[in-house]
Amino acid sequence: MHNLIGSAETARLLKCSRATVQRRALNGDLDVAYRGPGKTGAYLFDRTGVEALAKVSA
């Protein structure tokens, strides 16, 4: 089972804003594990992948 986290936690781990997280997700620079239905559906990210990206970016 995936350990999914939202945009706010992803932003905290990557030390950026939620807007940057969403922009990176839309551009394909950040893998989205799940996107909720509808125009404003929530983005969920795999914690392991985000933590790995944070280490590389540090």
Rank of each mutant, 00 (worst) to 15 (best):
A8R: 15
T40M: 04
Q22D: 04
T40Q: 12
A11M: 03
L53T: 04
G36H: 08
A11E: 02
R23A: 14
E9H: 13
A58Y: 03
A19S: 14
V21L: 13
L30S: 06
R23G: 11
A11C: 01
A58C: 05
L14V: 09
L30F: 07
K55V: 06
S57C: 03
G28L: 03
A52D: 03
T48R: 15
N27I: 01
S17F: 08
H2V: 14
A8C: 00
G41H: 06
V50R: 01
Q22C: 07
R18H: 02
T40S: 09
M1S: 15
R35M: 07
L44Y: 15
R24D: 14
V56Q: 14
L30K: 05
K39M: 08
L13I: 15
A42Q: 08
A54Y: 05
R23W: 11
D29E: 15
R24T: 02
G6E: 02
L26W: 00
G38F: 05
G49H: 12
G6T: 10
V56K: 14
T20P: 02
A11I: 00
A11Y: 01
Y34R: 09
T20Y: 03
P37E: 12
S57W: 06
V56E: 15
L4C: 10
L53D: 00
T48H: 13
K15I: 08
R47W: 07
G38W: 11
F45T: 00
P37D: 11
G49V: 05
S57T: 12
V56G: 02
D29A: 14
S7W: 00
A11N: 04
G38I: 09
T40I: 00
D46W: 07
L30I: 06
